[in-house]
């Protein structure tokens, strides 16, 4: 037999995880939250999600064609971007909004920078921030009340989500009563199970928690970022002057969606272990600062965006300790 054998670089065995699989697993982990949202807000949610994903995939293919690259929409990353963007939109936004947001996300935040792996900022969040800057009214007012519940999780208040209620309690009645109601066990329970209004994907903390833990266990999501994020939020809730309790801050808004699914985006988070702790903690700190003192009721997406911006710097400042480096203590004996 004179045929030559295949010569390739070692190693000759490979692990099971790959990009396509990881993207699909993340999407699967998000499906429970999406289904629940459809139950809460109706079929409109599904339409928005479909438009968002469709626009995202179409833009990805179009840009790759225009830039003369291989079309790789099947890797699932564009689908995930579209899905996450839809998760960050209020359910009553006009239908053209997700399409434009997706287009911005894919074109300006991802493809122009070289496509998957080279974007320095999370495309879905960039899309959301773009929509937020351009159409703040739709992004902060287009809520729908959930099935069998109220927008705020409290009976009688139907025009604000829990976080904006906390921020501007005085606009909706007696602030002290509202704050007490918000921190009630019943309200917290509503918030935890998702019986409140909010962005499409962020309502049910429980389902997001389940999906997120699944991803941590199969090693798609790094626990350092999630733990760093949640712990820093928890610590700051105790330290800083906020009217919300720990449970309220942890379960409300997009914190779980952000901490488990968006801050942990591989491409836009640091690669070093120390860097991931810093990144997670930074997200938590900025989230709480924006929630308490910032111009918006919710700070999750901006905090992650800001930390995305700092990621390259964090990476270059926190190199891993090379084996045998500075090993005065353990290395040289005698």
């Amino acid at each position: 037999m004179n045929e030559l054998f295949v010569v390739s670089a070692s190693p000759h065995v490979r692990g099971k995880m790959n990009i396509d699989l990881a993207m699909r697993l993340v999407i699967i982990a998000l499906v429970p939250a999406l289904s629940y949202s459809v139950f809460l807000f109706g079929i409109r949610v599904l339409i928005i999600t479909a438009i968002s994903i469709g626009a995202s995939v179409a833009c990805e293919a179009l840009m790759q064609k225009m830039l003369g690259k291989k079309i790789t929409v099947t890797d699932g990353s564009a689908v995930l971007t579209g899905l996450l963007l839809a998760f960050n939109l209020p359910p009553a936004v006009p239908l053209w909004l997700p399409a434009i947001g997706s287009a911005f996300a894919i074109i300006f935040a991802k493809q122009l920078f070289g496509g998957l792996g080279y974007n320095f900022i999370n495309p879905a969040l960039a899309g959301r921030a773009f929509l937020m800057a351009s159409w703040p009214l739709f992004m902060t007012k287009a809520w729908l009340a959930p099935a069998n519940g109220t927008l705020s999780g409290i009976d009688g208040i139907t025009s604000a989500t829990p976080l904006s209620l906390l921020k501007n309690a005085a606009n909706y009645g007696d602030p002290s009563i509202i704050v007490r109601q918000l921190n009630d066990f019943d309200t917290i329970k509503n918030i935890f199970f998702g019986n409140i209004g909010g962005c499409i994907g962020e309502t049910s903390a429980l389902l997001l928690l389940i999906g997120g833990l699944f991803l941590i266990i199969i090693r798609v999501v790094d626990y350092r970022i999630v733990v760093g994020y949640l712990v820093s939020v928890a610590v700051l809730v105790f330290v800083l002057p906020t009217k919300g309790t720990l449970m309220f801050h942890l379960f409300s808004g997009g914190l779980f969606l952000g901490a488990f699914f968006m801050a942990t985006d591989w491409v836009t988070s640091p690669v070093t272990h120390k860097g991931r702790w810093i990144f997670g903690a930074g997200c938590g700190i900025l989230t709480i600062i924006i929630r308490i003192w910032g111009g918006y009721p919710e700070g999750v997406s901006y905090s992650i965006l800001l930390m995305n911006v700092f990621t390259p710097l964090i990476d270059s400042l926190t190199k891993e300790r090379v084996f045998g480096e500075l090993s005065k203590k353990k290395g040289v004996k005698k």
Binding site: L112, F113, G114, F120, F130, G294, Y296, N308
Partner: peptide, 30 residues
């Protein structure tokens, strides 16, 4: 990064700065 030649240099830097500014909008109203 494998950036398109006509975007290399200034254009992509501007777009990066744009996204940075977008993120910094998070501080507005602080």
């Amino acid at each position: 990064a494998p950036i398109n030649p006509s975007l290399k240099g200034y254009p992509i830097s501007f777009i990066a700065a744009s996204l940075m500014a977008l993120a910094f909008l998070g501080f507005s109203g602080l």
